[in-house]
Amino acid sequence: MTSKTFNVILRVWRQAGPGREGRFVEYPARGVNPDMSFLEMLDVVNDEIAARGEEPIAFSHDCREGICGTCSLVINGKPHGPNHGVASCQTYMRSFKDGDRIVVEPFRARPFPVIKDLVTDRSAFDAIQQAGGFITARTGSAPEANSVPVPKEVAELAMDAAQCIGCGACVAACKNASAMLFVAAKVSHLGLLPQGQPERDRRVLAMVATMDGLGFGGCTNQYECSAACPKLISHDFIARMNRDYAKALFHSAFRPAAAGGAGA
């Protein structure tokens, strides 16, 4: 556990507010312990900055155990840093060495405007979710849980998709700032389960329309998203969503219209 401390130089994006001009500022981080997390290293640097009477670096973080999806740094050109399958908060300083220059930037995408420094506004994801990322099940109206069996393989696959922490690294990593992996994860999680079938077509059409409307780019099947995903969500789900989308288009074009009308 005791390991020698070392020094690195941070080059951090500083931006006073939304739409303001930003620039990179260098800060030395001295006495870095390899067992520190990247965010803990930033905490220490921030205390030093504050002690000098300057404003600390604003960065998003909360649970610091890789599940809340709040942290969102691009470290040396990679969302969430050099390691595979972890969030920024689980990036440890042992991944760096003495004398490294580390460039820290916010997630960049037009639908994720910078709020301040490294903090971005990712409310676009909530808007996509609100468009259809749910199964309508009024509280109290649910049938007995075991009345609908779900094959283990299906439940596991749904869980693979459902693990998404909504951090936005997929968007940050994509050269098109596409949100396909995020949306595909949501669509697949609910679309795989029997409970999600009634709204399956409506869901995929609505979520994709909202995603497009918010200004996310399209998918060019390069799979940078799944490579950057801290939960390693597979781009297989994107293929699945494409298929679901095509089916839903087909269904919507040929479904006979129901007469409808209010009940008694």
């Binding site: 960049r108 910078v114 700032a177 200004g215």
Partner: peptide, 10 residues
Amino acid sequence: KARGDEPYAV
């Protein structure tokens, strides 16, 4: 357009 105006430095 989706990528935005500010490119990544790295």
